[in-house]
Write a protein that binds this DNA or RNA. Sequence first.
DNA 1: GCCCATTTGTGCGTATGTATG
DNA 2: ACATACATACGCACAAATGGG
Lengths: 245, 245
Amino acid sequence: MTKVTATSDSHLSGVAIWRRIADAVRLDIVGGKLARGDKLAGEMELAERFGANRHTVRRALQALAAEGVIRTEQGRGSFVDSAKRLSYPIGRRTRFSEGLAGQASELRRQVLGTRLENASASVAAALGLVSGAKVTRLDTVSLADGRPISRATSWVVYRDFPDFAARFAGEQSTTAVFAGLGVSDYVRASTRISARHADAEETALLKLAPGAILLVSEGVDADVNGRPILYGLSRFPADLMELVV
Amino acid sequence: MTKVTATSDSHLSGVAIWRRIADAVRLDIVGGKLARGDKLAGEMELAERFGANRHTVRRALQALAAEGVIRTEQGRGSFVDSAKRLSYPIGRRTRFSEGLAGQASELRRQVLGTRLENASASVAAALGLVSGAKVTRLDTVSLADGRPISRATSWVVYRDFPDFAARFAGEQSTTAVFAGLGVSDYVRASTRISARHADAEETALLKLAPGAILLVSEGVDADVNGRPILYGLSRFPADLMELVV
DNA sequence: GCCCATTTGTGCGTATGTATG
DNA sequence: ACATACATACGCACAAATGGG
């Protein structure tokens, strides 16, 4: 019906047709509609379904094959070669490693660095500080079975936890660090979720194809008295992860 | 430094540089870094910042101007011409209209249609039915101040609420329909959030630029006894909306 | 082995889009 | 506005591999 061509494409999307097809097919796979080992529809049928040329479909399938999502065999077809998306639970008492337990056999958190900086307007607002107040910033990448699944940045009030950066090196989890600093318990006070394209740094760190979509979760953790102790900004590849409330 | 060109672009992203620039600038605006009336950086400076040619930056600014996000004045610069993103609250007791009250002056829900169908595997699983059971499907688009902000599809068990479709025509809200059918209260039992590109139909209905990113929220509402009564799939343009947990 | 339909792989020509200078 | 280079998308044709009679 509506033939989507580079030329007829009404508003000139700036997103190639082959990429939209690749995204749609990948969605069926990570969303569970197609399971590992399943045979995809033929190139002709996909071309028909998306109103595109077979070459364009092939370009999309090549991209998915390069990602390791599918495998193509001449004369036989294309087959699903990867698993469902991981679910990251979001709740008042969520802890990173607990949430993903059972979904991956090996979870690892890599610390990219810590540094002392002056709170930007948004960080200050989230932590209830004046703009420019000293905060400790922590940059991490998390991996499940060796694959990067999140890029997180956290800010902690320096005045309240001057040792935060030093302690983090020796500990595996944020929970453990806070426990060592006298905060026995904390809860998620608020979470905002949005989505956007990955920038260059995120593309590199998360080993994504350029133009990949990220789910962005932005939240504040507070202690039992409701005092904000940590502001976090996490970015998840939308292809690999979904958030469960 | 890292010059991003169509040619040097490592793996051929399928997303044009002008679109990535437009997305990044729009993000600063809807994310609150730039407020209505603020002046954007000059074209030369933006070109420098993104490592692109000034022509390419101009292409991005043209796209944003066409969307109504910015306004460009010869000899003066470009200025922010739109407001912050709307926040859609997600909680156990969230109602659509209550959640957005105060953020827009006029909210409207448009019914695209209702129909009786056989539950697909995913719908059946969510509602606790056998695959193929009869369900009523309801398709809607919601608008805030005339702008489409969500595309939702809901499924209700036909056996439990045979009059659902008929009643919806006369009522404004799902809450009112359920109230008329004897369900005085219901809560959100589970929610899964993901992100992806819009397809052709969504692009048309939500009046988006092709290739736009959607936040997808998938959830089950249950009555006070925990019995699933409605399965909903909502899609929000990530440029306009964020979800707050 | 051979034929055949199906499916993927490849080559060529053309038009338009993207990005630079 | 112009010139250049490459990417994207299409259409047609044919080659190569697979699997079933």
